[in-house]
Design a protein around this nucleic acid. Sequence first.
DNA 1: GCTTAACCTGGACGC
DNA 2: GCGTCCAGGTTAAGC
Length: 307
Amino acid sequence: MKWNIYQGSPLALSVTLSSGQAFRWRKDSTNVWWGTIGNLGVALSKPNEGADAPLYWQTFPLENRWEVVSDYLRLDVDVDALYREWIKREPAIAEATRRFRGLRVLRQPPQECLFSFLCATCNTVTKIERTVSKLALRYGEPIASPNEENGEQTPELFAFPTLLALAEADEALLRSDLWGYRAPRVIQAARSLSILPSDYLLALRQRPLAEVRSALTSLHGIGTKLADCIALFSLDKDEAVPVDTHIRQIAVRHFAPLLSEKSLTPRVYAEIENAYRDRFGDYAGWAQQYLFFGELKRAETLAGCPD
DNA sequence: GCTTAACCTGGACGC
DNA sequence: GCGTCCAGGTTAAGC
């Protein structure tokens, strides 16, 4: 495989691909990340440490599709400028921006993002990764591997399944693939979406957050939190703040202690997301991702399994 | 408007 | 080896 090299905006590749936004990226023994964007296979690698180190990249079977890769990684966003603004308004985020400089919120294909987060309710990141990968393996089309040179081994990659394939999926098989009680939700959501215009989800990128939320929560199995995840990670809603247990704990610890005793009702959810938006503005969702990933690492350290 | 229980399952943990 | 708890939530019913 012939690598291309990009050197420009800071990018924390491994942090970005393992921060709980996308669930089908895999790193091989040579530190190459393999994944898919739509029907395109993608290989990404940063042999040298550091957000400013060169990025090696290639796509397949169509080669050299940089516009797809850079769009997915949101390399147009000036993260250093964001950090300066955030720290001025909330010093508590300084450590996370230092540790994870170059972490980016991805612009994923909305369909894969939606079904991945449908799996996330009451689940662990490890299990979500396995479950979503099984879904692609069972119902997705294989992507032709790049030409192998020098004994390179490329993993088998699958495009995310079509709505039609998911709408006709077998519930019992999905249950046995770790979807559990979420299995009927996958089929039902696929059926609901398959009768809408084919660009329905993509068109939501042009709509305001409130409208996006309303559209997504009308699907069975998607509540406010999942709708915010899908809006942030695939529909350009950089201001969306998915409030989960981690994000709530961070808010309570740093800037909303009065919310510690309250149940996460819609009103409390709104109070927490507003607390983030007051501090971090139009890119509150990005700031949330830095704090969320820091919290994940903190939990791993407390559990005795650092990095 | 808020609380509660049910929904799958595997891994971690204590015994 | 076994029981218990928990994990990026949603939904529907009951108050």
